[in-house]
Amino acid sequence: DETGKELVLVLYDYQEKSPREVTIKKGDILTLLNSTNKDWWKIEVNDRQGFVPAAYLKKLD
Rank of each mutant, 00 (worst) to 15 (best):
I29V: 12
V8P: 00
Y12D: 10
W40T: 02
R48M: 07
E44S: 09
S18Y: 07
D61C: 12
L9D: 01
L9W: 06
K42F: 15
L32D: 00
K17V: 08
Y12F: 13
D1N: 14
K59V: 10
P53H: 02
T3Y: 14
W40P: 00
V22N: 02
N46F: 13
I29E: 03
L60T: 06
K5G: 08
D61E: 12
N37L: 08
Q15Y: 15
W41S: 02
K58D: 07
R20G: 15
I43R: 00
V8C: 09
V52K: 00
Q49N: 08
I43S: 00
Y14L: 02
L9S: 04
V45W: 08
Y14H: 04
T23W: 03
E2Q: 14
Y56S: 12
S18L: 08
D13C: 05
S35F: 06
N34Y: 06
D61Q: 11
K17F: 06
S35A: 11
W40S: 03
D28G: 05
I24R: 00
A55C: 15
V45I: 13
T23R: 04
E16I: 09
V22T: 04
I43V: 15
D13A: 06
A55K: 14
D1R: 08
E6I: 14
E21H: 05
T3N: 13
K59H: 07
K25A: 08
V8F: 05
G4H: 15
N46C: 13
K42H: 09
A55T: 11
G50M: 07
L9T: 04
S35D: 15
Y14A: 01
L9K: 06
L11T: 04
L9E: 09
R48S: 06
E6S: 14
E16W: 06
R20Y: 13
V22Y: 02
L7N: 05
R20P: 06
S18H: 10
L11H: 02
L33S: 03
F51Q: 04
D61A: 12
R20S: 11
D61T: 14
Y14R: 05
P19K: 09
Q49V: 13
S35C: 10
T3W: 13
G27N: 06
G4S: 14
R48K: 10
E21V: 03
D47T: 10
L57M: 03
K58N: 05
Y56G: 07
